[in-house]
Amino acid sequence: MTVFDVSRAYARQEDVFYNDGRELELLRFVYGRPDLDKIRGNPTKVLEAIDEYARTQKYLMNVGEDKGRIVVDLISEVKPKTMVELGGYVAYSCILFADAVREAGGERYFTLERDPVFGAVIMALVDLAGLNDFVTVVFGSSDTSIKRLHSEGVLKHIDMLFLDHYKPAYMTDLKLCEELRLVTPGSVLAADNVIKPGNPPYLEYVRSTVAQKRKAVEGGEHELGVQGRFPDSTAKQYAWRQDGERLVSARGNPNLVYESRLINSFEPTGVPDGIEVTRCVREES
């Protein structure tokens, strides 16, 4: 399959590559390399091995070089002490960003992943990269994991948040983080796939004024689900979301003021996409 063929397939169905066994094949591919000893403890070499599998074997829905560079540069600027990633897949973004956070003097990187198979792949590759003492891999739905980490006192504040999981959960998980005071003035958010497949509710929320958000809360709009704003292939992206499970209903903190902008970028397939970079600048009374 050529890159053009992959791009056409990706454009036709965003979840076509999801969970068909290639993730475990990747693990066998990386750990079966003859130069494994040279890879061990080297995040860059592990990323190169993942890229080689995606280039020569089967496509992987990783963040890619173009968008990855955007977030790494942002990490270098922000220097987050604690960074949280929602949606770890096969650890590519986790290894890339955690290494950057560590280089920037950070203290901890959390990657939250719902699929236990993907989570196992993440743990194995994070260990191979020598980052297991810096990265915490958390299994379970993102909202449940966020609430548990907060209640246990493990996660007290999010300096930087990378959103790359179930698209309808972007806005609801952000609101949950606002309610728990995990996202406050100074927090920086980077949201992937806001162009392809797109995320209208999230973009509207982070670009809204305080007055607009207060009006939405007063009107009870925070109670409404957002799945209907997405194509069927996105709303039903993951099998566990087809069993009637509802997204968490959160009021959020409408008093937070965001400055948000889109940075245009590309998927590894060449499909145009973008990273929405959002900074929480203050809280109005």
Rank of each mutant, 00 (worst) to 15 (best):
V3D: 07
V3W: 00
V3Q: 02
F4Y: 12
F4K: 10
A11I: 06
A11M: 15
E14Q: 12
Y18W: 15
G21T: 07
R22Y: 09
E25S: 13
R28Y: 08
V30D: 00
G32W: 05
P34C: 12
P34V: 11
D35C: 09
L36E: 02
L36A: 04
I39M: 05
I39Q: 04
I39D: 01
R40C: 08
G41A: 13
L47G: 00
D51I: 06
Y53L: 08
Y53F: 15
Q57E: 07
K58R: 00
K58L: 00
N62K: 03
N62L: 05
V63A: 07
G64S: 02
E65F: 13
K67M: 03
R69T: 14
R69F: 07
R69A: 08
S76Y: 09
S76H: 03
K79H: 02
K81H: 01
G87K: 12
Y89I: 06
V90D: 01
A91F: 03
A91M: 00
Y92S: 06
Y92M: 07
Y92D: 08
Y92H: 12
F97P: 00
F97V: 00
A98D: 02
V101A: 00
R102L: 04
E103D: 12
E103C: 02
G105D: 15
F110D: 09
L112V: 14
V117R: 07
F118K: 04
F118Y: 07
G119D: 01
V121N: 03
I122Q: 03
M123S: 09
V126I: 05
V135E: 08
V137S: 06
D143V: 12
T144M: 15
S145G: 08
I146W: 08
I146F: 09
R148M: 11
H150R: 14
E152H: 14
V154G: 08
L155Y: 04
L155E: 14
H157K: 00
D159Y: 07
M160D: 01
L161T: 05
H165F: 09
H165N: 11
H165Q: 13
P168L: 05
A169C: 14
M171R: 10
L174D: 01
K175F: 08
L176R: 13
E178P: 03
L182W: 02
V183W: 05
V183E: 12
T184C: 15
P185G: 13
L189S: 13
A190Y: 03
K196V: 11
P197H: 08
G198Q: 14
Y202T: 01
S208W: 09
A211Y: 06
R214M: 10
R214V: 12
A216K: 00
E218I: 03
G219H: 11
H222G: 06
H222R: 10
E223K: 04
V226R: 01
G228W: 13
G228C: 11
R229V: 07
P231E: 12
S233T: 14
S233I: 12
K236W: 14
Q242K: 14
D243F: 15
D243Y: 15
E245A: 13
L247D: 01
L247R: 06
S249K: 15
G252F: 01
G252L: 04
N253Y: 15
Y258C: 03
R261L: 14
L262F: 05
L262Q: 10
P272C: 13
G274Q: 02
I275H: 04
V277D: 07
V281T: 11
E283I: 13
E284D: 09
